[in-house]
Computed example of a mutant assay.
Amino acid sequence: MVTLNRIYTRTGDKGSTRLATGQSVSKSDPRVAAYGEVDELNAVIGLARLETAAHEWIDQALSRIQNELFDLGADLATPDDPSLKFTPLRIVASQVERLEAEIDEANGALEPLNSFVLPGGSGLAAHLHLARTVCRRAERAAVALVESGAAVSPEAVKYLNRLSDLLFVLSRTANGNGAGDVLWKPGATR
């Protein structure tokens, strides 16, 4: 269990922070950037949940996802280190598989698309589209972390990839199973 008795420590005043291992790193470190993006995604999903009153299933899924995003943040904040005296929390394959099952379930009720969808429609759909774009940014940060040579759980990157797909499908669900989607009309304003 985490205990937070004091909120400010002044240890970051010079631009550094500590990873879950206790290692001091710059706040601009790719690992810090990756879990920071995940934190922002969690906040955006919290905003989306303000719009879920008529969508209990979506709210329940987003509630679980918010908790899993803290798991993901812990995963990204903990480099592989054989000398660790604790077992790091990692995203596992079953979490990715659950997202895939939810994508399939929600997408099964939707009409196939014949155009790209613009962010909008209902308030919930707009918030979910924003969450989707923040999720893609978090995914890019996680990929950059991997490309920097850092050891990252492969399931962490997969999780972000599937989550952005789920957020897209949920936005269409929130738009009356796609009936209220705002479709892109190429060149319509020329």
Rank of each mutant, 00 (worst) to 15 (best):
V32N: 14
A138D: 03
A106C: 09
W184D: 00
I65P: 07
L72G: 11
G178Y: 05
G73P: 04
A156S: 15
G187Q: 04
T173W: 02
L89Y: 02
I58D: 09
A48S: 14
E40N: 15
N114D: 08
N177V: 01
T52E: 04
S83G: 05
V143M: 13
A34S: 10
R90I: 09
A174V: 06
P79I: 10
Q95H: 14
L99G: 05
E139R: 13
S24H: 05
L128T: 11
L99T: 06
R31G: 09
I7D: 05
L183A: 08
G108M: 13
T21S: 12
L170F: 10
L163F: 05
Y35N: 07
G187K: 00
P79A: 11
V146G: 02
R6E: 11
L160M: 09
N114V: 13
E100W: 04
A151F: 14
L62V: 13
G46V: 14
L113E: 01
N107R: 10
D81C: 09
L160Q: 09
I58M: 07
T21F: 05
V134G: 13
N5H: 12
V143L: 15
R6M: 06
E51Q: 15
E68N: 11
V25I: 11
L166N: 02
A142C: 13
G120L: 08
A156Y: 09
Q66L: 04
S164K: 04
S83K: 08
N42K: 01
Q95A: 14
E147G: 00
D59P: 01
G178V: 00
S153F: 07
F168T: 02
P88Q: 15
P112V: 01
G123S: 08
L89S: 03
T3V: 10
L110V: 08
F116N: 00
A156I: 10
F116G: 00
S122I: 02
A61Y: 06
I7L: 14
S94H: 11
D59I: 01
L160G: 09
E155V: 02
A174D: 02
L47N: 03
L166G: 03
E37D: 15
D71H: 07
K14D: 10
V152D: 06
Y8K: 03
G178K: 01
G22F: 05
L183K: 05
F116I: 00
N42T: 02
D75H: 06
L160T: 09
E37M: 12
G15F: 15
L160E: 11
E111P: 11
I58Y: 07
M1D: 09
I103Q: 02
E155D: 14
V146S: 10
F86I: 15
P88G: 15
H55M: 08
A20M: 12
Q66G: 08
G176P: 01
A93V: 02
S83D: 06
I103R: 01
L50C: 14
L128R: 09
A53P: 01
S16W: 12
T17W: 09
T11G: 13
R18C: 13
D59M: 01
D165Q: 07
E105H: 04
T133P: 12
A53I: 08
G123H: 06
N161V: 13
A144K: 12
R162A: 03
A174H: 03
V38K: 08
T78N: 11
